[in-house]
Amino acid sequence: MTLVSRAPQGTPPPDPGDKFTMLLAHADDNMVLSQRLGELISNAPELEIDIAVGNISLDHLGVARALYTYAGEVEGEGHSEDQLAMFRNERDFTNLLLVEQPNGDFAHTIVRQFLFDAYQAELWSDLAHSDDEQLAGMAARAAKENAYHLRFSAGWLVRLGDGTYESHHRAQLALDELWQYTAELFEGNEYREAWESAVGSTLSEATLDVPDDPYQRTGGRSGFHTEHLGLLLAEMQWMQRSYPGLEW
């Protein structure tokens, strides 16, 4: 792949069967979510939550780095983790739209995390059985970290949903707003049923309603993003773009 593509914007949709494409998509998911959580540190409702958010951000970053590095090896053009993260444009990123959504209030942060954690629970347990041993190893490790993330996000979702009148309202609002990005989680996989059942039982414990708005926005996996991603990348990639080719 040509980095910092000068190709006409709107590169052909990646072939989902291609391993490099697949690795990049999952790397981008974790990279973008890590970046979002990184924005949050020092802004959390309590010190203990700052620390937890830091941990989760670091875990996602670790997964992203491992996947980018492996993607670079699979591609065989000598691209490093930094090159793949920093020198691809908005249209070349294939992360899910869900993870690029802004932090919003703490309810939005938690709902986004929860919906994604529940998805990654399926993803990692699936990939842990991959024929590709290297990928299976990464997935097994990520699955453990994800179990902790899910406990954190589900725990907080229940606390917010079944907490006060205000927190319930905020959690429901966040859920209603972010629900439109969930259909995309199941493109090209069979995770929906398990995901719906896991999410449904936590939502019921949280006394939250499963949204019934049928509208779904998709496109992340083919680079058709919301407007939030470009700004996130501008910030993330700024140093490398300003001083290309340097060691840091």
Binding site: Q35, G38, E39, I41, S42, D50, I51, G54, N55, S57, L58, L61, G62, A64, R65, Y68, E81, D82, A85, E235, M236, W238, M239, Q240, Y243, L246, W248
Partner: peptide, 17 residues
């Protein structure tokens, strides 16, 4: 959010944490 490499970003998050 602006750390110049992913390695530096990880160090910085761990430190602020």
């Amino acid at each position: 959010t602006r750390a110049p490499s992913l390695h530096r970003k990880a160090i910085l998050i761990a430190k602020v944490q």
